[in-house]
């Protein structure tokens, strides 16, 4: 396993707006021919129900540790030049950005695959939770199926 610290990956939790332009600029390098940026945003409709806003909470120490692990897993599987993962916490309105994942690689295929892996795994293992504030006045934590939080890693390339 590569050690993430030697790569200076940008792994953050923040209460502030995510500056995805700055994040994207930070991962540009002359070695990369491809950069992908994924933004997760607050969606209004979920299976017919209307969201007013979301509240995000994290177990910060473990969330950062898991995000760093994911960076290492990703670097083990794809030729990543630079990467960044920023997750926002606290209160988010419709359309606001909750998470940004940015990856630069020499070629686009690897950049897309690495970016997809990072966001998919983040949603499986990083201890962050969202609470729905529905338009009918109710609130509810979103807790997906109770399957194992430790799915097998996908095969590398």
């Amino acid at each position: 396993m590569k050690n993430y610290t030697e790569f200076n990956d940008r792994i953050e939790l923040t209460d502030a707006l995510i500056d995805y332009t700055q994040l994207t600029e930070a991962i540009r390098t002359h070695q990369a021919g491809a950069i992908i940026l994924f933004l997760g945003t607050v969606r209004e409709m979920t299976q017919g129900r209307q969201t007013l806003c979301l509240d995000y909470e994290a177990y910060p120490e473990m969330a950062l540790a898991k995000m760093r692990e994911l960076a290492g897993e990703t670097r083990n599987q794809w030729p990543v030049e630079k990467l960044g993962i920023i997750h926002r916490l606290g209160h988010l309105e419709l359309g606001e950005i909750s998470v940004a994942v940015a990856v630069s690689c020499p070629h686009r295929k690897h950049a897309f695959e690495a970016g997809q892996y990072l966001i998919d795994r983040l949603k499986e293992v990083v201890p962050i939770w969202k609470k729905e504030n529905w338009s009918d006045g109710t609130t509810a934590w979103v807790h997906p199926g109770s399957g194992s939080p430790i799915p097998l890693q996908k095969g590398g390339t």
């Binding site: 997760g40 473990m62 997750h87 998470v99 949603k123 201890p127 939770w129 934590w141 399957g147």
Partner: peptide, 12 residues
């Protein structure tokens, strides 16, 4: 040990 208890995660 530092122990924590929580539901399945739902970030992203």
């Amino acid at each position: 040990a530092e122990i924590a208890c929580f539901p399945p995660v739902s970030g992203g």
